[in-house]
Computed example of a mutant assay.
Amino acid sequence: MNILRLQILVLIERLRKVTAVADELGMKQPTVSFHMKKLEEEWGMPLFEMKTGKVMLTESGKLLYQYAEGIDRLYREAQERFASYRRQGKHQFVIGCTDAASSVLFSGNWYRLAEEASTLQINLITDQTNRLLEQLHTGKLDLIVFGDSPLYERELQGCQSELLLEDRLSLFTTKSHPLLDAQQGGTASSYLLQGQSYVKLADPSIEEAVSSWFAKEQLKLSSPLSTDRIDLALNAVRAGSLLALLPSSAALPLSGGILRLPLPGQQQSWKLVAAWRSDYWNPVQQQRMVALLKELPKLQKTADSK
């Protein structure tokens, strides 16, 4: 199998012209045509055809493309990883996480603490859970961190997961909110919350936890605003008219007049988990990283107390 020839097939599908593929690869047109012919000989079927002045993939070419595109993507990712290793002298470890996970786990001086405890070059990216899972399965990410939810059971097939921490939901508000004028003893009662407006965090794990708590307390709150970022949710709270229901440690340290109050009635937990592919190439390294992520909250508390 020749990687270059598979790359040519992928580029033909995208560019539809041999000259454009040659320019993209920095090669001469006859060289590209030669490799296209050799690729057809290798697979024993016509893979390319001319239509209205463009080079198109045949049905067989489209079938091979499904595999070639994945091989090309993985090959490029391997090139990037090795290039990073040559530059940094460290292997790159790519962690994907949701915004909620980053606010809870990767706050404060987390990177300095992680850098001291790890010999890896850590690359942290954020995205929605479903897209993180897709990137995990394709090998673009080494590990993902997200809020636990039954919604992802199917997508987690072929993966291992581990609980990193369990947090409680809290009520975030400001001193100027009308709720504070009516409450007594520093804790808002359920009946005072009835009918209030809150900003919804568009994270399935948090939405499920909030809905579960609403059901337990028989509450109904309106939600005129939704966002997938905790910082934007807290900005809305600072305006004084909205509440937020978030993991307790999602907004530490508190600033800008934000108050964090315990939820009235039954407490509601939220779980943060890490997941990685079961066939990950270095399971020992993976376990070390998971252990480090578990220790991060403790390390941050210790550093903050000094």
Rank of each mutant, 00 (worst) to 15 (best):
R73T: 09
D181G: 07
G108N: 04
V94H: 11
D72F: 05
Y111A: 11
I71P: 00
G61D: 04
E116L: 00
H91R: 14
V94A: 15
L151S: 13
L133T: 08
L164C: 07
V145D: 08
C159H: 04
E153G: 00
D127A: 10
K62F: 01
Q157G: 05
A114Y: 08
E153T: 09
F93N: 11
S149L: 06
S102C: 11
Q92E: 13
S176E: 15
F172P: 10
I95Y: 04
L124Y: 01
E166V: 05
I95W: 10
K90F: 02
A117W: 00
W110A: 15
T119E: 14
D148I: 00
N109R: 13
K62A: 10
E153N: 07
R76Q: 14
S84G: 07
Q135N: 12
R73I: 09
E115Q: 12
D127V: 00
L179V: 06
A78S: 14
K62T: 02
T126L: 11
L74I: 08
Y75T: 12
M56N: 11
M56K: 12
V145L: 10
Q66T: 15
T174Y: 09
E162F: 01
E69M: 00
I144F: 01
I122S: 00
G108Q: 09
Q183M: 15
R154G: 11
Q160K: 03
I95F: 07
R73Y: 08
S107E: 13
Q157V: 10
F106S: 11
G139A: 14
L113V: 06
T174V: 12
S102K: 08
L165G: 04
A68Y: 01
R168V: 05
Q92A: 15
A117F: 04
D167H: 05
Q92F: 00
Q128H: 13
V104L: 02
A100C: 13
L164W: 01
L179Y: 03
L120Q: 15
T126Y: 06
Q183G: 00
L141E: 13
E69F: 06
L171Y: 04
L151N: 15
V145K: 01
Y65F: 15
Y85V: 02
L64F: 03
G147E: 07
Q183N: 03
L113T: 00
L124H: 04
S103F: 03
I71A: 10
L165W: 03
C159V: 02
L74N: 08
T119D: 14
F93E: 04
L63Q: 12
Y75H: 08
R112Y: 06
G89C: 09
